[in-house]
Amino acid sequence: MSQPTAWFERKFAFPLSIEVYPSVVERLSSAADRLAEEVSSVGTSLMKKPQGRWSIKEHVGHLGDIEPLWLARVEDYVQGRQQLTPTDLQNKQTDEANHNASEITDLLERFRARRMLLLHRLETLHPRQITAMVEHPRMKLPMGIVDHLYFVAEHEDHHLAVIRAMRASPK
């Protein structure tokens, strides 16, 4: 399969075991480095928009755009909310951000800085917050924080796979 499945078509099975928490956090902590590595040798194709879809810069910008949502959802667990904070399913923020006008280094640094906020917050969680279950607003599935963080890691790996496919595409 050369192209990743569209994100909203992905299916997930939760809950995951609490034992995978350290591994998932490790994936999250390496995401900024993996993203930087993936775009390091792209060159001038950073702004190409295949079939009118997002450019590589826009994918990187989107990961920075959505990072505050992941942190807000961690707070949903901390506050004992019944449902996770919803997202804009149209990705309006990314579409309107004009990430192609930004330097790729700035987009990467923005993502890295926002990810550090999430990682620092995770360090402060109480064990009962890690085992709490909250409903995901789109999928209507109860998710523990391990499930949420796995979802986040899968989301960014999805974008990394899309970027890799874009790099490999001759167009």
Results as ranks from 00 to 15, higher is better:
Leu71Arg: 13
Thr85Glu: 13
Met143Trp: 08
Ile56Pro: 13
Met139Pro: 00
Arg81Met: 12
His155Met: 06
Arg112Ser: 12
Thr94Ile: 07
Lys48Trp: 00
Ala153Asp: 03
Thr44Val: 04
Gly64Met: 03
Pro170Asp: 12
His136Asp: 09
Glu96Arg: 09
Phe111His: 06
Val162Asp: 07
Ala153Cys: 10
Thr105Asn: 11
Glu103Pro: 04
Leu122Arg: 03
Leu125Cys: 05
Leu63Glu: 06
Ile104Thr: 11
Leu84Ile: 00
Lys11Ala: 15
Gln82Phe: 00
Thr5Gln: 14
Ala6Gly: 08
Trp54Cys: 07
Val146Gln: 04
Arg138Ala: 15
Arg164Tyr: 00
Leu125Asn: 03
His159Arg: 02
Ile145Ser: 04
Gly43His: 04
Gln82Pro: 04
Leu28Tyr: 01
Thr131Tyr: 05
Thr85Lys: 02
Glu123Thr: 10
Glu103Asp: 13
Gln79Ser: 14
Met166Val: 10
Phe14Ile: 02
Asp88Leu: 08
Trp70Arg: 05
Thr44Phe: 01
Leu16Asn: 10
Lys140Cys: 03
Arg115Val: 07
Pro4Ala: 02
Phe14His: 11
Ser29Leu: 04
Thr87Asn: 12
Glu37Lys: 14
Leu118Phe: 06
Leu84Ser: 03
Asn100Val: 07
Ala72Asp: 15
Pro4Cys: 01
Leu35Lys: 04
Arg27Trp: 01
Gln51His: 13
Gly64Leu: 01
Leu69Met: 11
Trp54Lys: 01
Gly80Phe: 02
Met166Pro: 06
Thr5His: 00
Gln129Phe: 09
Leu117Lys: 15
Ser2Phe: 11
Leu16Thr: 03
Gln51Phe: 10
Arg10Thr: 09
